[in-house]
């Protein structure tokens, strides 16, 4: 049995239908535990005070914003190479989730930056890159919206996703070149010494797991909706033809 079996819409509907309740449940539990633990039961940071609690939303949403784009890139490539409709529809389904994550990361970042840096917004490389990522999500979704024929739309958005990824990466480096930042380095890394301390670390991990599960659940549900939409269009076309 290979991975490609899930490219069959029927098979995908069966499997995703079985996974969906588990993913939703896991998302709800992990998000509740992570955020409640983070909000109520972690100490304040000695420098940042209680604003450190924003980390449990800010870091997971920022991670998801980037990872969702990568996932869209992979599914777009699969669509272009192997022409599996589920893959293209999954990319389409993921884009609004990625946009929401980008907005959450930007909003929480602004609210965190105000007391810490004394400004809502700074043209810092990380912040600017996220704003650019937001524009890329908007363009991608607008192109899906604009084209009537679903297969052409899938093709063109996949190409846009490919080219956009290259330019998003270029923008990231260009922006680094252009300004030094206020933003601190990565909050999580495999090097133990670089990490945030353990009291913040474990609720953060739970919260990240919650965001991932939420993404999986939403993505499956949205993809199912898109697949149903395709079937509906096919039925309509057949009836008009008959």
């Amino acid at each position: 049995m290979s991975l490609w079996e899930y490219a069959n819409p029927k098979k995908f509907m069966e499997t995703s239908g079985r996974i969906l309740p588990w993913a939703s449940g896991l998302a709800a539990v992990a998000l509740c535990v992570g955020l409640v633990w983070g909000f109520f039961f972690t100490p304040d940071d000695y420098r940042q005070g209680s604003t450190v609690k924003i980390i449990y939303i800010h870091v997971p949403s920022a991670m998801m914003a980037i990872n969702i784009w990568v996932m869209m890139l992979v599914t777009s490539l699969i669509w272009l190479v192997r022409r599996h409709h589920v893959s293209a529809l999954a990319a389409k389904a993921a884009a609004p989730i990625g946009l929401t994550m980008t907005l959450i990361a930007l909003a929480t970042g602004a609210l965190w930056g105000q007391p810490m840096w004394g400004t809502w917004w700074a043209w810092d490389p990380r912040l600017t890159s996220f704003l650019i990522l937001c524009l890329f999500y908007l363009g991608y979704m607008a192109l899906w919206q604009a084209i009537d024929n679903p297969d052409t739309a899938a093709d063109l958005t996949a190409v846009l996703c490919l080219v956009g990824s290259v330019f998003a990466l270029l923008s990231r480096y260009a922006v680094n070149f252009w300004s030094q930042g206020l933003h601190q380095g990565a909050s999580l890394s495999l090097d133990k010494k670089e990490n945030v301390s353990d009291v913040f670390y474990f609720p953060l991990l739970v919260s990240i797991a919650g965001f991932v599960a939420l993404f999986v659940a939403l993505m499956l549900l949205r993809t199912r909706t898109e697949i149903r939409g395709r079937r509906l269009r096919a039925l309509m076309a057949r009836q008009r033809g008959a």
Partner: peptide
Amino acid sequence: LTVGLKRGGLLLSLLVLPLYIPTLIF
């Protein structure tokens, strides 16, 4: 990308301007 669209002009700028960013910065 937008050749087949009736009113592609606005969409075109939304798609193209983000891609212009690296050129603009450098």
